[in-house]
Amino acid sequence: MTRTVYVNGEYLPENEAKVSIFDRGFLMADGVYEVTSVLGGKLIDFDGHLKRLERSLNELDMPKPAAFDDLLEIHRKLVAENGITEGMVYLQVTRGAPDDRDFVFPDAETTEPTVVLFTQNKPGLANSPAAKTGIKVISIDDIRWGRRDIKTVQLLYPSMGKMMAKAQGCDDAWMVEDGAVTEGTSNNAYIVKDGVIITRNLSTDILHGITRAAVLRFAREAQMKVEERPFTIEEAKAADEAFVTSASTFVFPVVEVDGAAVGTGSPGPVATRLREIYLEESLKAGV
């Protein structure tokens, strides 16, 4: 079945969608994106994703697309037309397509941003087997650019990190800078020690995860202790539990780091409970 996608104001069959070869997202990775999960046909944490998109645009001095205020309607229409019950909506905004390639930003008054959205159907998203078995991660050097708080389309190194993990029979990689874990290739990273949830504090070093914010809020509401600070790989190996959060995984337990079992080597009670709370509360609040 051919998906309906959205490109610059038009709803099109995916095989008819086109973007200019001069688009700066294609030539310069000059673009930002968001991924919003769909559960029960509803958008999860949509307002948070929209606010972060606006922040990313502002940080890059990129103009808002004309369709910005219509993004909720566009998301809902794509979900409905493509029959998505569980899955994701991918949204990308680039600085647009000037007449030719140039390192200098094009004039915002003459070059409209490019806006692309498409859905991904993921049946069973809420009941992923990995949530029950846990995932294994390796550590790699974090050699990305310094503004990881901006959700740009510069995803080559995270992609390479996932391939490094796959080559070692693992599921993902945690990136390490100055001796401390920053984040996973596409998720925020956490450990649990003596009942305390530990995760890196917000800064330009990590993405300000929308799921991260919700999970930490739910944790505090459940009277769980949270400490926001950097932690090392050695701390992770010695932790009682570890887990990751993202819009596409929600909460996934981490059961192994660099070949060492974390805790019992099985999903722990904190990660398991947080996943339950997140799914329950997010379904209630979905739009």
Results as ranks from 00 to 15, higher is better:
4 T>M: 07
7 V>T: 09
9 G>C: 06
13 P>K: 07
14 E>H: 07
17 A>V: 11
22 F>Q: 13
31 G>L: 08
31 G>T: 10
33 Y>L: 05
35 V>K: 03
37 S>Y: 04
39 L>I: 02
39 L>M: 10
42 K>W: 02
46 F>T: 00
47 D>R: 07
49 H>G: 02
62 M>E: 10
63 P>N: 14
71 L>K: 04
78 L>G: 10
78 L>P: 12
90 Y>S: 09
95 R>T: 07
99 D>P: 08
100 D>M: 08
104 V>D: 09
106 P>K: 13
115 V>R: 10
118 F>T: 12
120 Q>L: 08
121 N>K: 10
122 K>T: 00
124 G>R: 03
128 S>Q: 14
129 P>G: 09
135 I>S: 04
137 V>I: 12
144 R>V: 12
145 W>D: 13
147 R>A: 01
147 R>S: 02
149 D>C: 00
150 I>V: 08
153 V>M: 06
155 L>A: 07
156 L>Q: 14
156 L>E: 03
162 K>L: 03
166 K>R: 15
179 G>D: 05
185 T>P: 09
186 S>E: 06
191 I>L: 11
197 I>V: 11
197 I>S: 13
197 I>F: 06
203 S>N: 03
204 T>W: 00
205 D>P: 02
211 T>L: 02
213 A>H: 06
223 Q>R: 11
230 P>D: 03
231 F>N: 09
232 T>Y: 10
235 E>K: 05
238 A>T: 06
250 F>P: 04
251 V>T: 10
257 V>H: 00
258 D>F: 00
258 D>I: 14
259 G>R: 05
270 V>G: 01
280 E>S: 14
286 G>Q: 08
287 V>Q: 13
